[in-house]
Amino acid sequence: MNKRLSLPRGFGILLILAIFIVPYVTVLITSLKPMEAMFATKPVWMFRPVLEYYFDILIQKGYYRFIINSFVTAIGTLFLSFAIGIPVAYAFSRFRFFGLRKFKLFILLTCMAPPLGIAFPLYFVFAQIGLVGTHIGLIIAHTGINLGLVVLVVESFMSGIPKEMDEAAMIEGAGALTMLVKIILPLAKPGLVATGVLVFIFSWNEFLAALVLTHGGNSTLPIVIPALITHTGTLWGQVTALCIVSTIPVIVLAIFIFKHLIRGLTFGALK
């Protein structure tokens, strides 16, 4: 296999890479600029990097607690959507039953609905039972948004596990639940990790449901970042610092599961 690239192709690939990461890197660099370099009318590229904006926004202003909120919501969503979604994925991959196709279509429809289509009706119900502005309310909404993803992607991984595994276990007298826990889940582990990471990222990034269903102390990062932009003077150093902090887990996790990323992002349709 030829591992060397022709000059035009290599140049083209570098150009693509530049287009997609330079804007992000520029903001990353900006978040490290001292005040006088940040608001120079001509962009300054040589400076002594400072971490003061990170300190100011996270520690002094106490915004670390929104990181905790985002984290709690994402982990909660991960567990709830797995608890509800994995049994369905298993049933879809192993059983034939009446109404399967309709049920599958319904699940797919829920994850194709625009976020407002989930969050807005939920607002009616949550407002009545006092779940607006709570972590659990947002976790339920995010689970609603991500349940389809969990079911479809995990099913696509489980369908790849040979049925002979089940038959062997069945002969040994294992029930369906034992089989799921002891045989299928361990074999589907790479798929579960990839799906879990995606659910975490989607919950971490989600904006509209969080905007509608949380306020003040319970807000997640995507809600507090735009709120820092004001007409009377935005502290861009702190805003960019918080923005960069909010992206780091996402980038690290995405690179970590890169192998399964496409399969997850296309709901298992593409392997």
């Binding site: 890479l17 992000y24 990034n205 989600e206 904006f207 970042i225 735009p226 995405a254 690179i255 890169f258």
Partner: peptide, 26 residues
């Protein structure tokens, strides 16, 4: 894995990045 970064960022981060880069004057 680096090219895919923009698609993984939250739309809010993406909007903020561009709002900052295209801000009048600075």
């Amino acid at each position: 894995s680096f090219i895919i970064i923009p698609s993984m960022l939250s739309p809010i981060s993406v909007a903020l990045i561009w709002r900052f880069l295209l801000m009048p004057h600075f």
